[in-house]
């Protein structure tokens, strides 16, 4: 016991539908954790279970010693922030959008934002580099900018745990790297614990401290990128032939795909 985020024998979902089966793992505070696995392996279900969107069937989740399933919605929103794959763009300015992260801290009958709300919003808009976009409409932003706004909104919730569902899909490599650099920096500087679903195994290996590999609703493997990204596990989980090497500069694992045609030649 005693990890910052401790998930033990956790099952969630609706009976009769896809459920997550007895997942257990622990994460240290300030770690940047990647969740990998093929489509339908339960990555998003795990997220929805942790955030409380799906009912718990079994098991416990404790965050900083507190069981999250016993928290009120408001309490949970102060501890866990979620950035989903598609940023819901309303017809509002970036600043209006980001300041919504303060809602869990505002009193029931509080009508206006406090100075503290404004200061915190300002701080995270600056940190994510979107303070120059504050008066722009969310609808007019590019995909990358919307993701940054989503992250800024999540940060204004001042959470202990940040859940990111594929923040870099649909983005070009410039923006992928920009966002991952930002998240890595945040997790180090704010010692924020980050759980991120990511499809790109090479980005996962390069950026994350720990990887969780999911398969068919269960957790197949946990460990450092080198421990998880080996060709045996990847081939078993993804049913694809790969070769793994080490990045000569970063020392992190790199995964190469091999096409059917090449395979036949070899």
């Amino acid at each position: 016991m005693g990890k910052f985020l401790e998930i033990s024998e956790f099952s969630c979902g609706y009976p009769g539908h896809f459920v997550l089966n007895e997942i257990s793992f622990g994460i240290e505070k300030g770690h940047f954790v990647g969740i990998i696995g093929p489509n339908g392996s339960g990555k998003t279900t795990l997220f929805r279970g942790i955030s409380g969107e799906l009912p718990t069937l079994k098991g416990k989740i404790t965050l900083n010693g507190q069981q999250t399933q016993r928290m009120s919605l408001r309490e949970k929103a102060r501890n866990i922030a979620v950035v989903t794959q598609h940023i819901e763009v309303g017809n509002m300015t970036v600043e209006e959008y980001v300041i919504m992260g303060r809602i869990p801290y505002q009193k029931q009958f509080q009508f206006f934002e406090t100075g503290e709300d404004l200061a915190i919003t300002e701080k995270y808009m600056k940190l994510t580099g979107i303070d120059n976009l504050r008066d722009k409409n969310m609808n007019s932003l590019s995909g990358g900018e919307q993701q940054l706004a989503g992250i800024a909104r999540a940060l204004t919730q001042e959470p202990e745990l940040l859940l990111l569902d594929e923040p870099t899909s649909h983005l070009d490599i410039t923006h992928q790297v920009q966002i991952l650099n930002l998240i890595q920096r945040l997790s180090e500087e704010l010692s924020l614990t980050v759980l991120m679903i990511i499809h790109d195994l090479n980005l996962a290996g390069e950026y994350c401290d720990t990887l969780l590999m999911m398969q068919k609703g269960t957790l197949r493997k946990t460990g450092t990128p080198h421990e998880v990204l080996n060709y045996l596990d990847i081939e078993a989980v993804y049913d694809t032939v790969v070769i793994t090497r080490t990045n000569p500069v970063s020392g992190k694992p790199v995964v190469f795909l091999v096409s059917e045609k090449t395979m036949k030649k070899v």
């Binding site: 009120s72 929103a77 979620v82 309303g90 919504m100 809602i103």
Partner: peptide, 12 residues
């Protein structure tokens, strides 16, 4: 305005 799921994530 952000949708039901997001509103729940914000503690509503």
């Amino acid at each position: 305005r952000l949708g039901e799921v997001k509103a729940r994530h914000l503690g509503i």
